[in-house]
Simulated scan of single mutants.
Amino acid sequence: MASETAAEEASATGPGDAVTESRSQMLRQLVRYTVIGGSGVALDMVVFLLLHNWAGMNEQIANVLSTTLAITNNFILNALFTFERRDRLVVRFLRFYAVGLTGIVLTDLLFLVFTDALGIDANYVKAGSLPLVLALQFVLNRKWSFA
Rank of each mutant, 00 (worst) to 15 (best):
M1R: 11
I104G: 09
S11Q: 15
G14T: 02
L69K: 08
F48W: 04
E9W: 06
V46Q: 01
A18W: 10
V113T: 11
V64Q: 00
L80F: 08
V133L: 12
F83K: 05
V64F: 05
V41K: 11
N74Y: 00
E59N: 10
N53F: 07
A127E: 09
I76S: 03
A135M: 10
F146Y: 09
E8V: 13
W144F: 15
A98I: 03
R23C: 08
G38H: 11
F48L: 08
L132K: 01
T67P: 00
I61N: 04
Y124K: 03
A62T: 02
L51D: 00
T5C: 06
S66D: 01
F146K: 01
A117E: 01
R28D: 12
G103R: 12
G128L: 11
A70T: 01
L49C: 09
E84C: 08
R86F: 06
D17M: 10
R32H: 12
A6N: 13
L50F: 11
L140F: 05
R95M: 10
T72I: 04
G119K: 13
S22W: 10
A12K: 15
F138D: 07
T115I: 01
G37Y: 06
V35E: 04
A98V: 09
S3K: 15
T67E: 00
P15E: 13
L49N: 12
S129K: 05
T20E: 12
L69T: 09
E4F: 11
W54Q: 05
T102N: 07
I76H: 06
F146V: 02
V46Y: 06
A79G: 13
L130V: 15
Q29G: 06
K126D: 06
G100S: 06
D116K: 13
V99E: 09
I76V: 13
G56D: 03
R142V: 03
A98L: 08
G100A: 01
N78Q: 12
A70N: 02
E59S: 13
M57E: 06
R142G: 04
Y124S: 01
S3A: 15
